[in-house]
Design a protein around this nucleic acid. Structure first.
Lengths: 121, 121
DNA sequence: GCGGAGTGATTACAGCTGTAGTCAATAAGG
DNA sequence: CCTTATTGACTACAGCTGTAATCACTCCGC
């Protein structure tokens, strides 16, 4: 499974959220701040098809697109890659890093604690 | 501060670990599995200089290179970016994701719990 | 002094990415 | 039927990236 680029990821997000969709529908749903034209979205869709990240089925003279990989798997791969590179493959240093940067609120801390507690049972 | 590419990051890691170094010394220390020639390493160094990620000082007819940005800051930016994109900017879902994928050992859990406990005091 | 080794600078080039434009076919509307 | 809007396919092109090769200079050993 080939690598998905940043811009392509925005298209995947749309389809993970709702599918199948036509190219035009995808274009409507892509975040506005991208400022993409319809041709741009079509290019993304073609490339994602070529990469095997999307599948399409014929619907008259159009295609309906849907994800061919699970968001869960993609997220696991990407976050695993980052954690391997920057935190020696372990989650704890990442949490420590966030904590040191004051990016953890007391509510976050409570939430994570609850989650871990759940895990142990 | 411009974006650092994946390959360039490998060079940064070397210099974060030890600096200042000459180009040849960096090349020696880059992970072998990259299989880079000396010219390749020099290209990386030039680009990182141009991006402002490295600084250099003259040493006779050579340069000594050293980081111009802190690893800590770079890591914060990159991991923040990923967490924003994939986990809505919050750490908890990432932890949950790791847990769901069985990437957390009991030892990890204990470690994170200790860390959080520390934070609260 | 002279030739070779090391050094930065410059150039090369293909593949990926962001961002379209163009074109041919076709469906739909008048 | 004929025009127009829609759609996928193909083409374009610059900037970034990985991966060098080449070149000109200079210092060191002979």
């Amino acid at each position: 499974m080939e690598r998905i680029a940043e811009g392509e990821y925005a298209v995947m997000e749309v389809l993970w959220d709702e599918s199948p969709l036509t190219a035009a529908e995808v274009a409507e749903r892509v975040p506005l701040d991208r400022g993409w034209s319809l041709p741009t979205v079509k290019t993304m869709l073609s490339r994602l098809l070529a990469k095997g990240a999307l599948a399409h089925e014929q619907d008259g003279r159009r295609y309906l697109y849907r994800p061919a990989i699970r968001r869960e798997d993609y997220v696991a791969e990407e976050s695993g890659r980052l954690i391997d590179r920057m935190f020696g493959g372990r989650l704890t240093p990442l949490v420590a890093h966030f904590a040191a940067r004051d990016r953890l609120t007391p509510a976050d801390i409570a939430e994570i604690e609850a989650l871990l507690k759940e895990l142990k049972s």
